[in-house]
Nucleic acid binder design. Structure first.
Length: 255
DNA sequence: TAACATGTTTGTCG
DNA sequence: ACGACAAACATGTT
């Protein structure tokens, strides 16, 4: 979505921001005296946040469970629209409305993100096993829930955490402190591999989430949502469990 | 109908 | 300090 936002806004200016659903704006982030039009200067991702920058304002998005950006007016649960000076628009669609949108003065998006305490990026930057071991030093929870802690490493979600563990042949129930060097090394390789493959599969004008029917990405995942289906490596049925209130899928035979 | 869902925050309890 | 858990947010799907 960051790539799309960049592509859709490059060389254009934000003419106006349409808030279709006022409940979208969080307290303390009302649309104050925003000065428009504003020439877009770029778009970047930090963890699961997306920020569109311009010479006057930064617009920060978080999509939570069901939020997404779509080109054009969009259909259905549109919470906001970014209208550009060439007449085009980008819609923030979010059926469950857990997503967030914040508007800052230019540069404020980065400042705000810096205050969130997010851990370092695991992608596209790559790291070795020792780096991963150090980032998770002192963690007493199992490795899979630990991967979701945004203050240790930013950007990994529940689907990716299960996928990464399977790819790295690590039991998601393993105590983090018990992982050996070889496991950390496999984890270090699995993270960019999994992210790259998912991003490749999802590269299009509209991200498709699980359960959306047309374009459902179920086929993209090796274990997530595949309870009782055969493991791609060994054929053993994929197991579904709950960890810290979140669903985890893994192969209990080839970890 | 009830349970569950890709995320995060907040509070409780251990 | 850490961790597990539940609730809350709001709504759609199974």
């Amino acid at each position: 979505m960051t790539r799309n936002a960049r592509r859709w806004t490059a060389g254009r200016a934000i003419a106006w921001l349409e808030i279709c659903d006022p409940r979208l704006l969080r307290a303390g982030h009302e649309l104050a005296e925003v000065s428009l039009p504003a020439a877009v200067t770029g778009a970047f991702r930090r963890g699961k946040h997306l920020v569109v920058t311009s010479d006057r304002v930064d617009i920060a998005f978080h999509f939570r469970m069901t939020g997404k950006l779509v080109a054009g007016e969009g259909e259905g649960r549109i919470r906001a629209r970014l209208h550009l000076d060439d007449g085009s628009s980008i819609a923030f669609k979010d059926s469950r409305r857990l997503g967030e949108l914040r508007v800052f003065e230019s540069g404020g998006g980065r400042t705000w993100l810096d205050g969130l305490g997010l851990g370092p990026e695991p992608y596209p930057e790559c790291h070795d096993g020792g780096w991963w071991r150090d980032r998770f030093a002192g963690v007493r929870s199992p490795i899979k829930p630990a991967l979701l802690q945004q203050h240790r490493v930013a950007g990994l979600g529940n689907i990716v955490a299960s996928e990464v563990c399977w790819q790295a042949k690590i039991d998601p129930r393993n105590a983090t402190a018990q992982l050996c060097a070889a496991q950390w090394e496999r984890l270090a390789r699995a993270v960019p591999a999994v992210l790259t493959s998912i991003i490749d599969a999802e590269t299009s004008d509209e991200i498709t989430y699980l359960g959306e029917g047309r374009g459902d990405p179920t086929g993209v995942f090796a274990v997530y949502g595949r309870a009782d289906e055969p493991c791609n490596r060994c054929g053993s049925p994929i197991v579904a469990i709950r960890q810290s209130g979140r669903s985890t899928f893994f192969c209990d035979r080839c970890v």
